[in-house]
Simulated scan of single mutants.
Amino acid sequence: MQKPLDALDWRILDCLQKDGSATAAQVAEKVGLSQSPCWRRIQRLEQEEVITRRVALLNRKAIGLNVLIFSHVKLEAHSGDLLDDFRERIRRIPEVQECFVLMGQVDFLLRIVTRDIEAYEALFFEKLSKLPGVREINSMIAVSTVKETTELPLPGVAA
Rank of each mutant, 00 (worst) to 15 (best):
Q2S: 13
P4W: 05
L8M: 03
D9H: 07
L13Q: 03
C15M: 07
Q17M: 01
D19G: 08
G20S: 05
G20P: 05
S21M: 06
S21K: 12
S21V: 03
T23I: 07
T23P: 09
A24K: 00
A24C: 10
Q26M: 04
V27Q: 11
A28P: 06
G32D: 09
L33E: 13
S34K: 13
Q35A: 10
Q35I: 01
S36F: 06
S36A: 14
S36R: 15
P37Y: 04
W39Y: 08
R41Y: 04
I42T: 03
Q43V: 07
Q43S: 12
R44H: 04
L45D: 13
E46R: 08
Q47H: 11
E48M: 10
I51Q: 03
R53I: 00
R54V: 04
V55L: 11
V55T: 08
A56E: 12
R60M: 14
K61D: 15
I63G: 13
I63N: 10
N66C: 01
V67M: 08
L68N: 09
I69D: 09
F70A: 08
F70I: 01
S71N: 06
S71M: 00
H72L: 14
V73E: 07
L75M: 13
L75K: 05
E76I: 00
A77G: 08
H78M: 11
H78D: 13
S79K: 14
G80C: 02
D81R: 12
D81C: 04
L82D: 04
L83T: 02
D85L: 02
R87D: 12
E88Q: 13
I93D: 13
Q97E: 13
E98V: 04
E98L: 11
E98Q: 12
V101T: 13
V101R: 15
L102F: 03
V106W: 08
V106S: 15
D107I: 01
F108N: 00
F108T: 02
L109P: 05
V113F: 10
T114Y: 02
T114G: 05
A119Q: 09
Y120R: 07
Y120F: 15
A122P: 00
A122G: 02
F124E: 11
F125E: 15
F125T: 11
F125S: 15
E126V: 02
E126R: 14
K127Y: 07
L128P: 07
S129I: 00
S129L: 06
L131C: 11
P132W: 03
P132Y: 01
G133F: 08
R135I: 00
E136T: 08
I137Q: 04
I137V: 09
N138D: 10
N138P: 01
N138S: 13
N138C: 05
S139C: 05
M140H: 14
I141S: 10
I141T: 13
I141A: 14
A142H: 04
V143K: 12
T145V: 11
K147T: 03
T149E: 08
T149Y: 03
E151M: 06
P153H: 04
P153F: 00
P155M: 09
G156K: 07
A159R: 11
